[in-house]
Amino acid sequence: MKKDWTPLALVPVIALVALPLVGSAPTWVTLTVAGLAMGMMIFMMASGLTLVFGLMDVLNFAHGVFISVGAYGAATVLTRMSRQMEAEGLASDLSAMIPAVLAAIALAAFLGWFFERVLIRPVYGDHLKQILITMGGLIVFEQLIHVVWGPDIIPLPRPGTITGSFIVGEAAIERYRVAAVVVGLAVFAAMWLVLNRTRIGLLVRAGVENPEMVESLGYRIRRLFVGVFVAGSGLAGLGGAMWAMYQEQVNAQMGAQVLVMIFIVVIIGGLGSVGGCFLGALLVGLLANYTGYLAPKLALGSNILLMVLVLLWRPRGLYPIGKA
């Protein structure tokens, strides 16, 4: 099987180009780890959206609210488990973090199910209505977050195990960023295994290419749609929880604030491509950190420039899906 390895080279190329520009090796290491961590968190938030885009052809601008709701779900659990958080040790931290992450996933997944059933199902096949109704849904649910959790920013305590830094040589590496990289890699590995080693994954990959043919083979693609939408929303919730712990605060607009970056990642990767999304997220994370250090005013612009360059090179993204 012929594999296309060329886009994978972009990650080391960007990192190596940044090294002489940054100048200091320890700073470069810190920025690289920060970029990879940011990329992993963006991947978690974006991976569901790319599948929803690819499989269902749905432009879901409400994806941001799944991120916010996931963050609030995690914050709610973590603030109620402050006693476990105060106790030292990995076990007590995990006893607070695992329920928090599960709450984030469950809440966002439930909201995703509600959105698919109530808002998106009536507008399948109509992109303009999808944009309008999901933007409307985003605004309404951001306000509902204010109703439920209040309008103020909620500070989010980070468990002690993943707080602080450790020093490697002269480089300071934040523990939380390493944890984010580990969780991101685990999510990517799990998604890869499901997509490539299970029948459901085979159906999803086929459905992204040609849903009509999947139906012609006797499978009910609608059920698959709902499952993917719910799973994608749950992943956004997980990403939201991770992002909130990274920022150590939660607010209703946090999902909408990263939505532009998520769309850039989805487009760079190729609509519907999980592998492309992973690579795109790493590129965006690294570039945002390097340019944030070298030329802060260009941080967001650099990602748009990256998208433009990628699309000039590969108009359908780094790993396009052969859609029928």
Partner: peptide, 13 residues
Amino acid sequence: FAGLTVEENLRLA
């Protein structure tokens, strides 16, 4: 399904 192998195309069917 262009992105699937021959085997996967048949396995799906």
